[in-house]
Design a protein around this nucleic acid. Structure first.
Lengths: 203, 203
DNA sequence: GATTATACATTCGTAGTTGTTTGTTTTCGA
DNA sequence: TCGAAAACAAACAACTACGAATGTATAATC
């Protein structure tokens, strides 16, 4: 059995990536071997080397597929003017956290990005990439908070840039703590409380 | 040259650990080889295998030496009653963050624990250990906040447990974001602002 | 319907790492 | 002071994973 149709080949490729998610999650990116990924995907290493250059290239593909771009997801929702923009943001952040609990794939991929990669050597550029994306998010939030301030929805004395950095770090921390110990809290219950704590004093 | 005195042997051991910090930081725990650690410490692998069982055992020793126990460091300071306990806590957290900027060794070790380890396979127990320590910290903070609430320093309607979890996650996030991109902020300036944002609405 | 390129499987050589063993020298304890 | 063990260095053996090369059967193309 060889030489599948193009569609089958594409499915093979995505099966390899799915397998990579599992293996990276279970064994860490550095420890994961192409053999493990191959057998998890029910192919041989040959198939992986056909579709990808090497392990890093697989990671690269995963990175693309994830679209960790908070920005894109959030921006769309932020575009339309909401009567109470801060509340809107608060809800969105909570939903984003709760989604981690329901979406196993997102949980695994975020685990890979935050816990299972060391970003040394050839992987360093991917950290830079994530940091660049984060800067984008900061700018986005800053602008958003600035608008809220103009509309008197936000206290005038807060530094919007510091505020958005703080919010993003807050979310990062909640995510990381959750990934490191998923049993320690129930997102559906805790996320709204966490967010309330942060937003209660801004209005 | 062999068979040093006991003191010299102890120094060799700690030199190996120092080297391990550098190598783990630069290459990640999983990618780091004992050869790299050895040459960084100006010894051979034989020396490492004399002092440690294997790479994991070196990591274990590092884990012990760090005493990431926020608890111990903080507990001592929290013991004595402060006129304004929340302000005290706020300052302490800020100082803790600022220390990251000045103390390179702490920066590296925290990087190793948060970014350079995947905690898979044999390393899993160390994540459990850290999570257990974190639970301790939560309990500690909870109790502390509860005291503050009794003294009317804290709003009565906040859940102290959720509050301490939130604070710890907040700190985790700031730390992780800083470790991932140290150039993005200056702790001496930002840490007090971050903390002020969190504490301003509690009193 | 022959040819070519595709989509893999299989095999191979190699470099790197690990754990172990052996060797050597010096310090410590009796 | 004299063995015994400490504190390593050096050599060895085994495995593993990688990358590349090769093989091969089928789909696409004409």
């Amino acid at each position: 059995m060889v030489r599948r149709t193009k569609e089958e080949a594409a499915r093979t490729r995505s099966r390899i990536m799915d397998a990579a998610v599992d293996v990276f999650f279970d064994r860490g990116v550095a420890n994961a071997t192409l053999n493990e990924i191959a057998s998890q995907a029910n192919v041989t290493r040959g198939a992986i080397y056909w579709h990808f250059k090497n392990k890093l290239d697989v990671f690269d593909a995963l990175n693309d597929r994830l679209q960790l771009n908070f920005a894109d997801t959030i921006l769309a929702d932020l575009r339309n003017d909401h009567p109470h923009p801060l509340l809107q943001l608060e809800r969105m952040c909570a939903d984003l956290l709760i989604d981690l609990e329901n979406n196993l794939d997102k949980f695994k991929v975020l685990s890979i990005l935050f816990l299972k990669s060391d970003y040394t050597g050839e992987m360093e550029p991917y950290l830079d990439l994530q940091n660049a994306r984060k800067k984008q998010s900061i700018e986005l939030f800053s602008e958003y908070f600035a608008r809220a301030k103009k509309h008197k929805h936000l206290l005038a004395d807060v530094d919007t840039r510091v505020l958005s950095m703080a919010l993003l770090s807050y979310i990062t921390g909640i995510v990381v703590d959750y990934l490191r110990d998923p049993g320690s809290l129930v997102m559906r219950e805790h996320a709204p409380k966490f967010m309330r704590l942060f937003f209660r004093n801004l209005g």
